[in-house]
């Protein structure tokens, strides 16, 4: 927080626009979590721990729709569209490239809105996050959500039996992206 950077570069402004778009998006993740049946029954400490550990991954899933994989562009929540080539020249080029790659793979699973919501709930409620106090309660909720997701996917993708497995394999992939990128620096005008 005590670091200050040169504000004169254009890349700074683009990066700031991306940073600011996180605030409403993070708040929406918090509101979403509170509506997951059973989430509010967890201790507030565990609710906060799950959110702090999992929100980046949820944003990766949610932001997937902002990427146009064919055109290689990203539309920020402000509505402005940038090419991946331009973004790659900024400090966090690798982050955008990873997000685009992830979006491409997620899109091939062709999930509908309900499946996506349930998948996001599974991403968020993971008992193996650090700092969880009441493991049993989080595990029980996680099991319920995974069973619900499995049932929904099996019903909707009866002809594509590997969809659920492919979706579960996205979880370690997201974890890895979180580990690589959550320490990226964001800049804010102050």
């Amino acid at each position: 927080p005590s670091l200050y950077v040169d504000p004169s570069q254009r890349s700074q402004e683009i990066w700031e626009e991306f940073s600011l778009s996180f605030i409403p998006a993070v708040r929406e993740v918090v509101e979403f979590a509170k509506r997951i049946p059973g989430f509010r029954d967890l201790s507030e400490y565990d609710q906060v721990s799950l959110l702090k550990n999992g929100t980046f991954e949820v944003l990766m899933v949610r932001f997937a729709s902002l990427f146009d994989v064919a055109e290689r562009t990203v539309t920020f929540l402000t509505g402005k569209c940038y090419s991946l080539e331009l973004l790659r020249s900024l400090r966090a080029g690798q982050l955008f490239t990873s997000m685009c790659d992830f979006s491409e793979k997620l899109a091939t699973l062709q999930l509908d809105k309900d499946e996506m919501s349930l998948f996001i709930a599974v991403v968020l409620v993971s008992a193996d996050r650090s700092g969880i106090q009441d493991l049993k309660s989080v595990e029980a909720l996680q099991d319920t959500l995974i069973r619900a997701l499995r049932s929904l996917i099996m019903t909707n993708h009866a002809n594509e039996t590997t969809t659920f497995t492919k979706l579960l394999l996205k979880l370690p992939e997201l974890r890895s992206l979180n580990n690589i990128h959550s320490e990226e620096l964001l800049a804010f005008k102050v």
Binding site: L3, P7, Q47, K52, V190
Partner: peptide, 25 residues
Amino acid sequence: PKTHRVMTLADHISHIITQDFARNQ
């Protein structure tokens, strides 16, 4: 003149979540 503060993505997310829970208490 404009100055910029730098935070990590993880810190930023954590900060917004803490604020949100504090606001609703």
